[in-house]
Design a protein around this nucleic acid. Structure first.
Lengths: 232, 232
DNA sequence: TGGAACAGACCGGCGCGTCGGTTCGTGACG
DNA sequence: CGTCACGAACCGACGCGCCGGTCTGTTCCA
């Protein structure tokens, strides 16, 4: 039979919807973690929110910490690729910075859970968690730095300490997103964009191009589905 | 006898060093929370680190959350007043901004535990904790905003959205401090000052005065003692 | 029939908070 | 001036709920 071919592919042809179960667990974890925090959620909560069982859970993940890490590892590249995509559509370095900022804010605005988990819940977990978190933040900071360096190399900016700057930028953006998450201000996250844009660009002595108007509300709130990564 | 007078004062004349015990508890909590995180520390850890007992602990504080909140409430005004003091020594608005920044970095550099608790451990605790945290952050943001507004009113700066800006500033500073806390970079926190200074000032279109050189290592690491607040 | 994928009862520890008991300062009273 | 008694301050063993993780089944596909 075509059994070999079926097994050759990724989880799609697996025994009893293996990939789908794992996915349901991750989606449930995303929602529950975002709603109740890491310590506030029990494994049972995740079980209930998906509809799986203890057995299923511990078949797919080693423990509670494991699913959280897997979740972060699934969300980060998802967000990163969205930003990279937006960036690659713009030729001008400054416009790229601009596009990246807009994309980040829009994405967080759409997927609150994503923002909550990456920016709030992942903080202060102790253990070896902190370094994991810091590598995640460092990932985004490095991304910012890469484009800053590129802009400098292109002669669009005078040279400066791009590393410190990239962390500072990340922090500024992060704080505004967190404020929006916890208190409801401003009503729509994108409202900070104009001022933030000006702040960031001016902070590195970049010229201020015209404001590019743009606002598409998009679908309100769905899980930022951690799609199955491509086969290894 | 002078009995009435003795009881009239604050805890100083109390039965068996009541104030001192509470203080030891808070100091111990500061160290342990900073070292092991909020969820990582047990009440027993705090008991052991001070040398008190369960009974003493629950005599002074309602529960674990209670002592954490009390700790934050003790630390915040301590830091704030240090900053206010540094600011009031400078006449020029821009120089004030400068002094505040320097003071914050120096203080966090001296008292890691303070930074760890206020900026890391206080995040993502869930419950009604988040809003408490946000009010703390808002406290500092409002402080920044107050001085920004003052600088604008004095005509030293053109008018702009000082609220968003103050949060962004706070976030930028916060992120650099956290990075220094978790990874060890940079070796000395004050090393970010020159670049951060330039970033922040430029971001609001302020003129760049000469860099004010200054570095006093100070005593290395002691508890940022939550001194007994003055009598009510 | 074997084993992967899942179900759900159960257990064991950890940690928070309680509770009866003990010490010590302090004021009253003779 | 001694002592007696009361309550604030403190001690530390115990209990009990909660929650993470295990283990024995059960189903379904190959």
């Amino acid at each position: 039979m075509a059994s070999d071919a079926a097994r050759g592919g990724d989880g799609q042809g697996a025994v009893r919807n293996k990939a789908a179960t794992r996915r349901r667990l991750l989606e449930a974890a995303e929602q529950v973690f975002a709603a109740k925090g890491y310590h506030g959620t029990g494994v049972d909560d995740i079980i209930r929110a998906s509809d799986s069982s203890k057995g299923g859970f511990y078949f797919h993940f080693p423990n509670k910490q494991g699913i959280f890490l897997a979740l972060v590892d699934a969300l980060v590249p998802k967000l990163a690729s969205a930003v990279e995509r937006a960036i690659s559509a713009e030729p001008d370095p400054i416009a790229q910075l601009d596009a990246a900022l807009r994309t980040v804010l829009e994405t967080f605005s759409r997927y609150r859970a994503l923002a909550k988990i990456l920016l709030v819940e992942a903080v202060g977990l102790g253990h070896g968690f902190d370094e994991k978190l810091m590598r995640t933040r460092g990932y985004f900071a490095a991304m910012i730095q890469r484009y800053l360096d590129r802009a400098v190399a292109a002669g669009a900016l005078p040279p400066f300490d791009t590393e410190t700057t990239s962390w500072a930028w990340f922090g500024a953006i992060n704080e505004l997103v967190v404020r929006w998450l916890v208190t409801g201000q401003p009503a729509r996250l994108e409202m900070v964009l104009p001022q933030l844009r000006v702040l960031l660009l001016r902070s590195i002595g970049a010229p201020l191009p015209e404001l590019t108007p743009l606002d598409n509300p998009g679908s309100p709130d769905a899980p930022f589905v951690p799609s199955e990564e491509a086969e290894r």
